Simulated assay, not measured.
Amino acid sequence: MASKKHRKSRLKKAGAAPGTLVYIGDIKTQQPAIHILEYGAESLHEKQLTQAELAHYQRPPSCKLWLNVYGLHETSLIAELGKCFGLHPLVMEDILNTNQRPKVESYGDYLYIVLHHVAYDSVSDQLQTEQISIILGRDYVLTFQERPTGCFEPVRERLRNGRVHIREAGTDYLAYALLDAAVDQYFSTLEKLGDECEELEEQLLHAPNNQHLLQLHKLKGQSMELRRSIWPLREAVNQLVRNDDKFFAVENVVFLRDVYDHTIHLIESLEAIRDQLGSMLDIYMSSISNRVNMEVRALTVVTMLFMPATLITGIFGMNFDSMPWLKNPNGFWWTLCVMAFVASSMGLLFWRRQWLSRH
């Protein structure tokens, strides 16, 4: 569900021309940062740039470039990068709109890829979703993130450690490695979600309450959020596997197929969790219904135990001159004994038929 800040940002953009740069999203880092990796088979140069330094930055002709941006709320920074790399205005607009669905678009000289980084925050007990934009050129890769998440750090370590294959391969292999790192993050998130579902299921089977229902609805919302990210991602990766625009070398397409298999696995795991959540809701409703039935049955038994006493009391309360035990000094106590005997007999009958059991 979109936040109020997102709705306000959309209102600011309403009626604007296509390609107008307006940031839609929450500010998740105070100051945007630009991280650059220039690498080749035998060299690696890593540095940070400011927005002022970006205007004078010159790419080395013999090195491959990976430029990563943290923080997207400075539209002037995105505009400057668009000017340096010749990005289409619609691409820059989509980078700033952090509510994009995963997709792949070709702009002739480069590919534009959108996906989401989803991680489970144990502190807030919520899913944290960040949009990631990847631009794959012939000799460069640009990545845009809302905030530092550590998602791409394993890829940086492989470059720093001098892994031969990733250093010698083209930027298409780097784009694959970044995509694979982002997709792998979903497995840990789904595993955490699955563990919570199993724990909640055990609690529902023993003593369901309103807090469990709230937890169940929260998990269903998180599964829906994951579904909105994973299902379009499968189609985007499938489009990369087809490689219609020939941005990926033939030997690297097989790696993209592996990423596609991972997305299929994620979808199957997510659907299993969604089915489990649906069955858990049925368990909760059945448990509550069974509890109500037990309470109604208990009230019914109590009512039936007192019905004979009420009947006897009504009979002896009639205004007739001639009534059994009416003149007997012990008539009152005999009447109470009859009431107690009937109630005890009925209670014993209910107990033998297990009507008084809570299970």
Rank of each mutant, 00 (worst) to 15 (best):
N252A: 05
Y112T: 03
G221T: 14
I166P: 04
R257W: 02
Q51I: 10
N210S: 12
M1E: 13
Y140T: 12
H265D: 12
S345R: 01
Q128A: 09
V237K: 01
K64T: 02
A52N: 12
V253A: 02
I315K: 03
V164H: 15
D258T: 14
M280A: 10
Y110D: 06
R352D: 07
G347V: 10
D121K: 06
A2N: 12
K12T: 14
D275Y: 00
K4Y: 02
M304S: 15
A52E: 15
T20P: 08
H212C: 01
V22A: 04
I264D: 14
S344V: 14
K327C: 06
D180M: 04
L281Y: 01
L299N: 12
L87R: 04
L159M: 07
L127Y: 00
Y176S: 00
V241A: 09
D184I: 09
L281Q: 07
W355A: 00
W351T: 15
Q100I: 03
C63G: 09
F341M: 15
E251H: 13
R234D: 03
F187H: 08
L233G: 00
H117W: 00
T335V: 10
H73K: 04
L356R: 03
V250I: 09
R156N: 05
P232W: 02
H117V: 07
L174Q: 07
W355D: 02
A33T: 13
S344W: 07
D261W: 06
P324G: 03
L37D: 07
E268H: 15
P148H: 00
R257L: 06
I315D: 11
R291L: 05
L90H: 03
S3R: 12
S322Q: 14
L336D: 03
D244F: 04
E38R: 00
N97E: 04
L348T: 08
I230T: 05
E105R: 08
V104R: 04
K12D: 02
G347F: 13
L348R: 11
P61A: 15
L67R: 00
E168K: 15
L127S: 05
I134L: 13
Y107W: 08
E268V: 08
K12G: 00
L72I: 09
P60S: 15
W66I: 10
S3W: 06
N209T: 06
Y260I: 00
H116M: 10
R10Q: 13
S322A: 14
S188R: 09
Y112R: 00
I264N: 10
L77C: 11
I267M: 11
P89M: 03
S62T: 14
L326R: 03
M285T: 12
V302P: 00
E191A: 13
A343L: 08
L226E: 06
A41S: 15
E146D: 12
A177Y: 01
L348I: 11
R167H: 08
L205E: 04
P324M: 05
V155P: 01
G278Y: 02
I264L: 14
V91D: 01
F306V: 11
G86I: 07
G162Y: 01
R138D: 15
Q211K: 10
L256H: 08
T310R: 06
M224A: 12
G25T: 13
G25I: 12
V302D: 07
H262T: 09
D282P: 02
F320K: 03
L111C: 09
M339C: 11
P308N: 09
R7T: 11
L213T: 14
Q48E: 12
Y70G: 05
G221L: 10
L115V: 09
